[in-house]
Design a protein around this nucleic acid. Sequence first.
DNA 1: TTGTAAGCGTTATCAT
DNA 2: ATGATAACGCTTACAA
Lengths: 370, 370
Amino acid sequence: MPHTTAPMSLKSLARELGISAATVSRVLSGQAERHRISIATRDRVLGAARASGLVVDQLARSLRLRRTQSIGLLIPDISNPFFAQLARQIERRARHHGYSVLIADSEEDADVEAAAMTLMLSRRVDGLIVAPVGTPATDNPLRSLGGRPCVLVDRLLEQPSLPAVTSDHRHGAELATQHLIARGHRRIGCVEGSPGTFANDARIAGWRAAMASAGLAAGDDLVAGTGYSVDAGVAAARTLLRRAERPTAVLALGNVLALGVLQAAREERIIVPDDLSLVAFDDQLWAAVTSPALTIVEQPIEALGREVVDLLLERIAAPLDDPPARRILPVRLIERESVRDLGAGRVVPAPPAQRTPDPPAPAHGRAGAR
Amino acid sequence: MPHTTAPMSLKSLARELGISAATVSRVLSGQAERHRISIATRDRVLGAARASGLVVDQLARSLRLRRTQSIGLLIPDISNPFFAQLARQIERRARHHGYSVLIADSEEDADVEAAAMTLMLSRRVDGLIVAPVGTPATDNPLRSLGGRPCVLVDRLLEQPSLPAVTSDHRHGAELATQHLIARGHRRIGCVEGSPGTFANDARIAGWRAAMASAGLAAGDDLVAGTGYSVDAGVAAARTLLRRAERPTAVLALGNVLALGVLQAAREERIIVPDDLSLVAFDDQLWAAVTSPALTIVEQPIEALGREVVDLLLERIAAPLDDPPARRILPVRLIERESVRDLGAGRVVPAPPAQRTPDPPAPAHGRAGAR
DNA sequence: TTGTAAGCGTTATCAT
DNA sequence: ATGATAACGCTTACAA
């Protein structure tokens, strides 16, 4: 009958039991042994605590311990499915390590990001995980972290050189481009997200590299895009598709951009993959049921989440040794139906991509690569 | 040159300035006027605070003020796009009211949910927003809230009668069903999510009501489903599609279930919408580019987020007056291409649904209904 | 084996 | 117009 009305506290419980708060504290924090608390006392405390439904106040505890057992998570757009999945993995991993997550959505705005960081620090999070907006802020945020560790994820920054975990965006783009080249494509365009952003630029670099080593042109006329939204994707695709020499294939550097490309193709009465091949980034549940099902470069989201959290907790535990570790996780290409084989001269042997059959198996091979 | 190395604090700043902590506190919390702090002192404090990059410790502040200016958010699966969007709206609204959000993913597990709630309460969140798992927990969670307000969202519970904000699931299902009936469908099935869950059951009820008032059978043989996952959706759809009398139309009571239906239809070589019509719930960016584009019952996610937060903050501000308010927000039907008009006798006049044209306009009419 | 007391960084109350 | 002091609820030397 836990019919508590009074705001229980360790101290009040101690008073009720006629013992000191210190003893109760010791028992409740599992230090009974270490302090040779008598079994009798221990059980009395434990019993009473359970009966009264006492939970120790983490606020006071944190203040005293100078550690909140919580981390801050800063995401540019949590409604983007990629970040949503990432957030899930991060929260889950943190929870398993006994950490709570304070979350904020920076709305892709550097000032919001800076403000959110300050707020989180003032709430004394033990560390920070940030998928940075990557754009210069009015106020310098990622600098004065008050000494608390911070790990970047997905996008990494050069200026404040911080540890980071990302997937191999560059290699992903190479994989995708090589795949297209191997199927006879020569003019391959890119619908990009936010230029200047790490993941975006790394992907562009990968595409350029693959194009170059196949002796193909990779000029700026083959790139368009202004942001990670369907509308931006539509506009960029439209631009590309209306070029005098229309590309036969397009890389959409983000899953929602792929939606935009599909949309634009529809408008222009261009059939994918017959008239235009498409490879997108970041697998999603729906990517297997668009028409056509999308060939995709998949990021190891679970591993990403696991690694950032682990990396952050390591740095929270151990003082800051300086080599800002940078973990880059491998990606893989999932072939589905959005790429047409042009048959023409294969320049490069088909890359060793895992094949994911389609109608039979839906797309959630969460392989947790490496 | 904010070259702070020492862990600044209000108190240390006071010492440096040779004044009392109380005064600094008063200035920093905007109480200078109220306490008639001299302009000189005020400016000195403000200047020094800015120069040293001081941010007051919210932990200590919260402890003293008995209020953390933070709320807890409990979501069953934040990687589900519906909840991701909802979380975004909630976080954003909370932030605008000056509240931080502590988030946890209950993984659709009542025990995880209970544990997370306890943890949040121990962290002294000022209130809680919960999309409850809705399944009995080992430990009774939603009861001993330590007097702190809690508002449910999306799913509401009967037993602990708490204030809630949901969209009109029941009416949505009626709308969808009437839409199908008006297009000549007679056998209309349901692929459900988690039976026993509020949103799910309300939708089933709506479907039954619409079927009944059209004099159509709505037996259990027309319902299948065990959870909100693609796989569960595939299995349920398969069951329905293999019935002796196969339904001509199906309601997918959740967007990821629609993915499952599409998948299953592919396997069975059933063409949507020619052989099978489909109406799904919860609009998503991709719903316009599946093949076919999905006719959908859309929930007003932004309004949902806004209302829960506002409702919660009201209850945080004002002591608990008992009528557990229950706000039910209207939904709307977005017609796209996944419903076939059977032409046969129209039983009911076409419901007054907004039409969203497709190729021309992508699907983000965020109308913020009502 | 247990208690006392100081302190974590604020703010409210009461003085002055 | 400002300062001392106590208290928020906990943990941890240091004692006993």
